[in-house]
């Protein structure tokens, strides 16, 4: 347990210090959301109808963008070798790294969402629904994205390839995240059903993500 909490604390510290990129994700999120009205037009009725989808897409892209370096930095400086050798199972170490990443980069997106909701003319209830679905759904984005980050280390390729690999995997999360938010705003479906599925997806990804990432890292060692 000490080992995992040490790893989490280290990763959060690095993300928040100078040179760490935790808050750049939020800035990217903000920029993507601000760009939308320029493409769609400033019609507030339209924007508030599309608001949940815009916020979800923005959060999806922002969380993916910052995931790129999740394992790459540790791989480049040799830390990953020592983590692999240690008594801590690699699966748990992966989960700890993903959790730290979510706390430093995913949670700020959830916090920023209500402010951005204001720009898109979402009312209180809609903003709350989007923030709640993001809170439930962004861990799934981080934990599935982690698989891509691990593959990026294995393949020595980052960036766009990772995005192409991971984006299809996050489609279910996007579907039920937006569906739950829309249900809370307009209906006719109930909020409960899609939201439960979203939570289930997150729980599944919490299990699958670390195992897949660890397997990928183990096979990619050289």
């Amino acid at each position: 347990m000490t080992a995992l909490s040490a790893l989490i604390r280290r990763d959060i510290k690095i993300a928040l210090r100078v040179g760490g990129g935790a808050l750049i994700g939020v800035l990217f999120f903000l920029t993507v959301v601000v760009l939308m009205p320029f493409a769609l037009g400033p019609d507030l009725a339209l924007l508030s109808r599309l608001g949940p989808a815009i916020l979800w897409l923005g959060a999806l892209l922002a969380s993916l963008l910052t995931l790129d370096r999740l394992f790459m930095a540790d791989h480049e400086d040799g830390s990953l070798d020592l983590i692999t050798m240690s008594r801590t199972p690699l699966e748990l170490a992966c989960a700890a790294k993903a959790l730290a990443h979510w706390l430093a980069a995913g949670l700020p997106l959830v916090v920023a969402a209500p402010v951005l909701g204001l720009l898109l003319n979402l009312d209180m209830a809609a903003t709350g629904a989007v923030a709640l679905t993001l809170l439930a759904g962004t861990p799934a984005l981080t934990f599935t994205g982690m698989i891509g980050a691990a593959l990026a280390v294995t393949l020595h390729r980052g960036g766009l390839l990772m995005a192409v690999l991971v984006l299809p995997l996050s489609i279910p999360v996007l579907i039920f995240g937006v569906a739950a938010s829309q249900a809370a705003i307009t209906g006719p479906l109930s909020f409960g059903a899609p939201f439960s599925i979203l939570c289930a997806l997150t729980l599944v990804s919490l299990v699958i993500g670390p195992f897949a990432a660890a397997a990928s890292l183990k096979h990619g060692l050289d």
Binding site: P37, P42, L44, L47, L118, L119, N121
Partner: peptide
């Protein structure tokens, strides 16, 4: 009537 309007100046 809203906190934000995509008014040219504010934008």
């Amino acid at each position: 009537g809203t906190y934000w309007e995509w008014d040219a100046r504010l934008t």
